[in-house]
Write a protein that binds this DNA or RNA. Structure first.
Length: 599
RNA sequence: GGCCCCGUAGUUCAAUGGAUAGAAUAGAAGUUUCCUAAACUUUAGAUCCAGGUUCGAUUCCUGGCGGGGCUACCA
């Protein structure tokens, strides 16, 4: 139970006892951390009670303040400033909090919920390598999985691979025409990049063919439909759906190259999946559901044979769920996949990490499943995130402004190396240790950069700013962590002592402002984690951990730990920094960001 | 056209309807005989406009202006 919860409960108790005749809604009890310019730790806002109780804030504040001091052993004193009741918590509360929790390895871990949650993320196409936009999706999905797991859920990480369709055939056609049998092995090119190269090649050739046809007198529009390479791709798609052997064989081979490439990227990113779904497997499932829905009367058939659902009563349009020729559209397979996931994994919740351009699509998906009456519908949650844009605007593959994911990782690691060398911090490391360190710093920076913004908001990716290792970055937190580890090494203390080294600790002196600030922030950690889960927002953890690191740095500046004024202070400070480092590791680790012990 | 989202320091981001709107970065000025200066301290700088609700509005409502997305028998 967190302190804020306790304060709220005590305030409600006080109001109930002091004003038994008046019903005070629980939602009107708001508690905030006290602003630094006032004395106190937490503040109860009195304004909401004034009208209900028809009394002045000073009177109510005094009554509640007195009650809280007298009826708890942790409220030390109170102070009323213009409608705000500022509460000061006893130093002994903070001391016992730190003493009891500093080496608790499960601090921040929530109670089990018995819920199973699937988080689907990454969900790439198999015709080109992962790009910077995928990185936001992947890190968000992985971090969210971690947050949900820490808060007590059983989490299934899933990846739905879009491995079929015309775009895949385009790469295949171009490869057939121009590759002369080139493979990742023969060229030394990573599989996903090799296939991506032929996707680019396809588009180049398509443009050339269209230009030629226009030059020969054809209308632009007609040419774009009649280009031979496009026709080839279309034929290939039909052959694929018909199961034509050589096409299927090529499809398998090229997808295999892509998967091998993705695996390397995922491994480097430090992410993984428990379940893989392939649209080539699931697209038929949806069609069965559509048939059932037709029988149930949820869907209806138009004269041309196409099947629709009417969502006008929900303020939306009519949506097609199956084409006139009987083939599946995008949403058809999503319907099938949603049900398959639900049934295979016994899901209570299903989180989809998908960009906000698909808000409408996801709304429709959920509505269709609700109308169909399937129990999986209620648990569907679209974790919608904004697009990543460049300072110059959107990334466009046609204009070649897409930033490749592998390149980005390389660049970040190179920057980490360069900055470490420039700072002259390479001494005392082996070559392997340095390689690991650069990865930890470079990838940490990249992940943090993408996770620190509220997922719902679109974000600007500024290459110049992203490589900065100062300020609101992972490196700042990593550095603070390394400093703590360094102190503990010199003191000969493990970073997470198994035994309670400070069992005989007794507080006799006042806690300093810097010491208290750390304790207060540490105490809030479980609440922050829960908020991140409730709001599906890992950026709260980034903000929190950065604040913790800032406070540690200030603390470190004003207080010596190894040369503390006396043994009591030294023990208190050691406990504080052990716990600070632990919470940093826990929070960052939940999001897949590692913290080095030296840097 | 219809529907949805977003406008906060020069820039990138914060702020369950609560106190004098916080950080980071860029700018200015400082700190190292002492546990890692990738740090710390000080300083200057912002709520798109106009109404409304409220004791109190960056937050909620209405109307503008500006930006983005969706509105396919594409995925």
């Amino acid at each position: 139970m967190s302190l804020v919860t306790d304060i709220k409960a005590l305030a409600k108790e006080a109001l109930g006892n002091l004003y038994p005749d008046v019903e005070i809604p629980g939602s009107s009890v708001t508690v905030n951390q006290t602003k630094p310019e006032f004395t106190g730790d937490y503040t109860l806002v009195l304004f909401p009670f004034l009208k209900l109780l028809r009394t002045k804030p000073d009177v109510i504040g005094k009554a509640i303040g007195e009650y809280m001091v007298n009826n708890s052993d942790w409220v030390a004193s109170y102070d009323i400033v213009a409608g705000f009741l500022n509460l000061t918590i006893h130093d002994s509360y903070w001391a016992s909090f730190v003493t009891s929790q500093y080496n608790n390895t499960t601090y921040g871990q929530g109670v089990p919920t018995d819920k199973t949650v699937m988080v689907e993320y990454s969900s790439p196409n198999t015709n080109k390598p992962l790009h910077f936009g995928h990185l936001r999706n992947i890190f968000l999905g992985y971090a969210m999985s971690g947050v949900l797991e820490v808060t007590g859920n059983k989490v299934v990480k899933a990846n739905l691979i879009n491995d079929r369709g015309i775009h895949i055939c385009k790469s295949m056609v171009a490869w057939q025409r121009y590759a002369n049998g080139a493979t990742p092995e023969s060229t030394g090119i990573k599989g996903d990049h090799l296939v991506g190269d032929y996707y680019v090649k396809y588009n180049d050739e398509f443009k050339k063919e269209v230009a030629q046809m226009v030059a020969d007198g054809m209308e632009q529009e007609t040419a774009e439909k009649e280009a031979p390479i496009l026709k080839e791709a279309k034929v290939m798609l039909i052959d694929w759906e018909a199961g034509k052997e050589d096409v299927v064989e090529l499809w398998k081979t090229m997808n295999g190259w892509v998967y091998a490439g993705f695996d390397v990227s995922y491994k480097r990113m430090g992410v993984n999946f428990d379940k893989m779904y392939y649209e080539s497997d699931t697209y038929l499932l949806g069609k069965e559901v559509v048939q059932q829905g037709l029988e149930k009367g949820v869907f209806f058939k138009k004269e041309d044979g196409s099947i629709w659902i009417d969502l006008e009563s929900e303020g939306l349009d009519q949506k097609i769920v199956q084409r006139a020729d009987g083939t599946a559209v995008y949403i058809t397979q999503d319907i099938g996949t949603a049900i398959k996931k639900y049934e295979e994994c016994n899901l209570d919740k299903s989180v989809y990490v998908i960009g906000d351009e698909q808000n409408y699509h996801m709304q429709v998906l959920k509505l269709i499943l609700q109308k169909f009456g399937h129990p999986c519908a209620e648990g569907i949650y679209h974790l919608s995130y904004g697009m990543v844009e460049l300072p110059t605007g959107k990334m466009k593959s046609r204009e070649g402004t897409v930033v490749d994911a592998d390149d980005m990782m390389d660049e970040m690691i190179a920057i980490a190396k360069q900055q470490t060398e420039e700072a002259g911090k390479t001494e005392g490391f082996t070559e392997e240790e340095l390689t690991t360190l650069y990865e930890t710093i470079g990838l940490g920076a990249l992940k943090f950069y993408l996770l620190r913004v509220d997922p719902k908001k679109k974000m600007i990716f500024d290459p110049k700013e992203s490589i900065d290792l100062h300020g609101f970055t992972a490196a700042f937190i990593q550095y603070a962590h390394a400093r703590i580890c360094s102190i503990l090494r010199k003191e000969g203390i493990e970073k997470m002592p198994k035994d309670n080294l400070f069992a005989d600790f007794k507080l006799s002196e006042q806690i300093s402002p810097a010491e208290k600030m750390l304790a207060v922030t540490l105490e809030q950690y479980p609440d922050i984690m829960q908020n991140a889960a409730d709001e599906y927002n890992p950026s709260l953890l980034c903000n929190y951990t950065f604040q913790l690191a800032q406070q540690f740095n200030s603390f470190y500046d004003v207080h010596s730990i190894s040369k503390a004024e006396n043994d009591e202070k030294k023990q208190l400070r050691l406990m504080l920094i052990i716990m600070t480092a632990q919470v940093m590791r826990h929070a960052m680790g939940t999001m897949g960001i590692n913290l080095p012990e030296k840097m």
